[in-house]
Design a protein around this nucleic acid. Structure first.
Lengths: 165, 165
DNA sequence: ATTTATGCAAACGTTTTGCATGTGT
DNA sequence: ACACATGCAAAACGTTTGCATAAAT
């Protein structure tokens, strides 16, 4: 991992979504070359979604048809090291990637439909004391925490559907 | 998934650890044939550890040298369906397996040394309300929740080691 | 005898890697 | 010109599956 960067989250999203000179600047500032492939990956993530490497591959292919999965993976690694992208294990056997935000956060994933919401990490604060009391472990809120749940729609729809995640 | 079973956790551990007629009985009650392979897997888990399929394969190989990885996987699936084994995603890219306990529980994993502790699920209760308030999602405490942390030893040893998990 | 489990080999999906070619500076 | 990034192919990884053989009832 390299040095820490501090861009405001909305600005990063705008820059990434725009995909133009702004993304290039972010990359250059991180010491990477702003190639079309990297700019497209950044732009694909600009909407704020959590995407898998394969989803990114498919999307970027629209703009750069020659792109290869391994380039997507290498790009994501670079962007992660640059502090521009975060990698999240959403529990479906493959990794998900999102634009880094200003502050750390966690995820609630709907176990029925797979929808994801962000959780500010102070929501977890109340458990920290309980965990330490029960086990002696210190909760690590820097690391990602994934909470399973049901989104409002699926919770309403009743409890009988099979879990997708 | 099949029907629910209710064995007290220590009894299950004893039966599994002993590996003899007791394990066979548990298997038969679940409608499975008590083969040597299955009994050995059960016994390997009897210590209460969280083991990967590969770790189980290596251990069982001591007693049944002809065993095959695919048999381990199939056995674990059967034991899970029988309610005897639980499968936990401890975040290291592969699944971990443990004997089922009477009550649901979650895990804190030390991100330095990989040690695992159990968490009674009421430790999570305080967050449930916060999660719903923040996102509208209903927290699913039936599903497994994995919390990253530092075990007492690693927390004491200072914060500079690289993460193993 | 019949059902069910095993071993083997081959396939799977995701991710990583080696290496020659191509691109950005 | 040079460093760096890409595409391709191949491999790694954990896991699943098809099928003939073997073991349990």
């Amino acid at each position: 991992m390299t040095h820490q960067h501090h861009h405001s989250a909305p600005a990063l999203h705008r820059a990434a979504a725009e995909g133009g000179t702004r993304g290039a600047e972010l990359l250059r500032r991180a010491g990477c070359r702003p190639t079309p492939q990297r700019l497209e990956v950044l732009q694909a993530l600009g909407g704020g979604e959590h995407l898998t490497a394969d989803e990114l591959y498919e999307r970027v292919r629209g703009a750069v048809p020659t792109i290869n999965p391994s380039t997507v993976y290498r790009t994501l690694e670079v962007l992660e090291d640059a502090g521009l992208v975060r990698c999240a294990d959403l529990g479906a056997g493959r990794m998900h990637f999102e634009l880094a935000r200003g502050h750390r956060h966690h995820h609630v994933v709907c176990r029925v439909c797979g929808a994801v919401e962000h959780l500010h990490d102070d929501v977890l604060a109340p458990v920290a004391a309980g965990v330490t009391a029960a086990t002696g472990y210190v909760l690590d809120t820097e690391a990602e925490i994934l909470l399973p749940g049901r989104c409002p729609a699926c919770a309403d729809a009743g409890g009988t559907r099979t879990e997708t995640i």
